[in-house]
Computed example of a mutant assay.
Amino acid sequence: MITATPSTAPRSGFGLGTAVSPIVPVGRRFLFADRRRASLTVLGVAASLMLVLILDGIFAGAVDRVTYYIRTSPADVFVSQAGVRTMHMSASTLPADTPARVEQVPGVTWAAPIAFASGSVAGPRGRQLSYLFGYDTSTGRGGPTRLVAGRAPGVGEAVLDEQAADRLGIGVGDRFMVMGMPVRAAGFSTGGSSITNTTIFVDLTEFARIHDDRVSYVLAGLDDGADPETVADAIQAEAAGVEAQTTEEFADSEARVVTDMSADLLRLMSTIGLVIALAVIALGLMTATLTRLRDFAVLKALGARTPRLAGAVAMQVLLTVVLATTVATTAVLALAWLLPLAAPAVQISITAAAVLQTATTALLVGMLAALWPLRRIASLDAATGFRETR
């Protein structure tokens, strides 16, 4: 904001003159003086922000899918072999009596064993990596969160995620292969497929036929009001040779290992996207200042000090980034809603923290790029600055 008092000075076209209010929003007027240029600048910055948000959102969505089973589980505590804190890149084997020992711990209402292994599933249209879960179908604990078709699996049957079933050409009642063993599709679940893998659920006895007879993890449900962390510590102390974590801790551990597995690729993609985005933002906002450099010289000749000019530029940058962030966020949210319709396995997850971090980075870079050309005006007297910008 620049303050100008009424005078007989000629009108500059930017709010200085006899018919002007004392407070002149110069930054906003500079931005919207040429609406076509302003629109192009905002859209250019928005496109750059979209690139960063989409890259972050795809990775966050993949992590959400990988941890979906854990996050939607009815269990309050996950129990695994001592030293094992994840499902990915881990092998956990527990003694057969572990569920009974966990259930005896004060605060535990129920304990359900599950078996877990990684392998592949094959259908008429191809093959896909898969995580195989074995659970007690009589209680349903440890099984799929929700069935969208069919029923729970019986002998020689399995429940397959609906997205994988569609991709592999498998219908309810069809036979397909899991780890080289034939099964029949009893139903379809949802939410268990990602870009790289899917999930399959079978009864524990069927898991023993396909893979082996073991208990990989134990899910524990707690009494109302029981503190998960306290009970997890008690389980770990009383049931020797186990690792007990709350569901939240287990999901966080799973997310970290997935992030570590993809760290190099993620860092490369994010760095490339960020550099491109920041270059476009810097160029666009620097150009916006350069095109108004003569106008800033006029304002300085009329008495405006350099800090006031910098304030006008800062306001222009702030408005541009805010508008661009709004456009980019709206567009990415729309894409996150539409993309699963075309590619169900791809999920974009946008968080307020990601939007705030991206906008803040864009604002800092934009400020530096837009204020840099003002050094030409700041280092000269008003008359010389006016002549040099003509």
Score class of each variant (00 low, 15 high):
383 A>N: 14
309 L>V: 09
345 A>C: 04
77 V>R: 02
98 T>L: 11
238 E>H: 01
117 A>W: 15
218 V>D: 00
368 L>W: 03
154 G>W: 14
355 V>R: 10
49 L>H: 09
5 T>M: 00
180 G>N: 07
355 V>G: 02
223 D>Q: 14
338 L>E: 05
14 F>N: 03
224 D>K: 07
114 I>F: 05
318 L>T: 11
120 S>T: 14
134 G>W: 01
2 I>W: 10
282 A>P: 10
320 T>D: 07
338 L>N: 00
323 L>M: 14
39 S>M: 15
73 S>D: 13
332 V>R: 09
74 P>W: 14
326 T>V: 13
339 L>H: 09
42 V>R: 13
95 P>W: 05
185 A>E: 13
208 A>T: 05
339 L>Y: 09
268 L>C: 06
285 L>H: 10
119 G>D: 13
372 W>F: 15
299 L>K: 06
318 L>H: 06
52 V>W: 12
108 V>S: 10
245 Q>N: 03
173 G>D: 07
371 L>T: 01
134 G>T: 04
329 T>S: 09
339 L>K: 08
83 G>I: 04
380 L>V: 00
230 T>Y: 04
89 M>W: 04
341 L>Y: 06
170 I>C: 03
380 L>G: 00
22 P>L: 10
194 S>K: 02
366 G>P: 02
67 T>I: 09
339 L>N: 11
373 P>N: 06
225 G>T: 01
225 G>C: 01
272 I>G: 10
37 R>T: 05
229 E>D: 02
387 R>F: 02
229 E>C: 00
362 A>Y: 11
33 A>P: 08
298 V>T: 05
313 V>Q: 02
248 E>D: 03
82 A>N: 04
239 A>L: 08
127 R>Q: 12
194 S>P: 03
56 D>P: 04
280 V>Q: 10
118 S>C: 05
261 M>C: 08
144 P>N: 00
69 Y>S: 04
100 A>I: 07
187 G>I: 15
115 A>T: 12
367 M>D: 01
311 G>L: 07
359 A>N: 00
121 V>D: 15
103 E>P: 03
162 E>Q: 12
264 D>E: 04
16 L>Q: 13
240 A>G: 06
109 T>K: 13
278 L>Y: 11
50 M>A: 15
59 F>A: 07
72 T>R: 09
298 V>C: 01
361 T>H: 10
112 A>K: 05
281 I>G: 09
180 G>F: 09
345 A>M: 06
16 L>S: 12
143 G>C: 09
296 F>Q: 01
58 I>C: 01
122 A>S: 15
245 Q>A: 01
363 L>V: 06
356 L>G: 05
233 D>Q: 12
306 T>H: 04
257 V>D: 10
61 G>D: 13
91 A>F: 13
94 L>W: 05
167 R>F: 13
135 Y>C: 03
